[in-house]
Nucleic acid binder design. Structure first.
Lengths: 201, 201
DNA sequence: TCCGCCATTGTGGATATCCGCAAAACGCGG
DNA sequence: CCGCGTTTTGCGGATATCCACAATGGCGGA
């Protein structure tokens, strides 16, 4: 668990209480007093989770959430609110927010949910790294190699691929070996499994 | 879109109004006046979506939802409520409810959400049928065939599989051909793709 | 007992895959 | 201009996959 809790709340007492609570559970945190100040500091490689207040001077929590979604932020987001309503909660959750908690709330419950969000971030990052690695390897293939690979994955014989692309079978073999090398697999089966395992294009 | 909206509400006026609204949008429905009466009629192959009231005499909407989850019901569920609260809404959505709508609500909005739920049910059923078909085919394999298939999917040569299982290579070929036939694939690549494509064991 | 299914095996022949070694042509960037 | 990467091709040899045809033995159910 390597991420931290990013707290955005315009109430200093809440920020301090949250930071204290999470520290008592071994969770590091950092706090911002407004959505705008968080956005100034935001970086795509921030790890952990977000804890957003709903009502804030200036940009609101939900508005910040929308903005971060647009920026591709994947950190699990917990909304804390003393002034929420059901459509707001439902809307946030349907947009992918991790949780929506009314204040005042049970300290233990809150800490538990934050820890769950941090764990989810960890898992998501691990999966995203794996997907990115596959995508990098795919990007390293030449366009010819892509053409051959599509046909390998369609189960075509080298002879059929050669006829299809109007090249020699030996050339197909060369491309095939290069594809396996670049994709770091040893067989067409392994390649198929690699490319079927996630949400890849 | 072949499913219907299953309405469970103890208020006859609401049931009628909902049925009328949905009919005006081309959606068939059927209504029950209590959670218990719906449970008496419930069948696992019901198609469509569920519209549940929260507060009802006897078993409540959320209690019915829990019961149906336990029965393996996959129909997308929309909660309708005039008396909800945020934790209830959040809890339902986190358990997988499709939507949570406060009454009174916009007729158009409600109908749109119901139609979206019906579409989701349709997709889910299609995916479930595909998964079931694969599982049936897997079940038709003999245990020996399973052993060989695992090794094929691990990318092993027939010669290695034969040595591993202490049988002739010809036998591996026979099993291999039977596996492909039963799984309705033509190659190990296709088999790997078939078994990597969903949430299978 | 008979039959069907499963697991196993062999023979021989055909096709598919793999690869070292070698070579040539083209395009791009330093 | 030169080096490198890409694409292509051929040769020869080895290994892998596929399968028709044939056969045997064990097990379970009718």
């Amino acid at each position: 668990m390597t991420g931290i809790a990013h707290i955005v709340d315009d109430d200093a007492a809440i920020r301090d209480a949250l930071a204290w609570l999470l520290r008592s559970r071994g969770v590091d945190s950092r706090a911002w007093n407004s959505a705008e100040s968080f956005l100034v500091d935001y970086l795509p490689d921030m790890k952990g989770c977000l804890i957003l207040d709903i009502r804030m001077t200036g940009m609101s929590g939900p508005e910040l959430f929308d903005r971060l979604l647009a920026l591709g932020c994947t950190m699990p987001t917990l909304f804390l609110t003393g002034h929420g309503d059901i459509p707001l909660a439902v809307n946030a959750l349907k947009k992918g927010a991790f949780d929506f908690i009314e204040k005042p709330c049970n300290d233990n419950d809150l800490a538990t949910r934050v820890i769950a969000a941090l764990q989810l971030d960890c898992q998501q990052r691990s999966q995203a790294a794996s997907t990115a690695s596959i995508e990098t390897r795919l990007r390293n293939l030449t366009s010819r190699e892509h053409e051959v690979m599509e046909r390998i994955l369609a189960g075509q014989y080298n002879k059929v691929i050669a006829a299809d692309l109007n090249i020699a079978m030996r050339t197909v073999e060369v491309h095939r070996a290069r594809i396996f090398e670049k994709m770091n697999v040893r067989s067409a089966v392994e390649l198929a499994q690699l490319l079927s395992s996630g949400q890849l294009p």
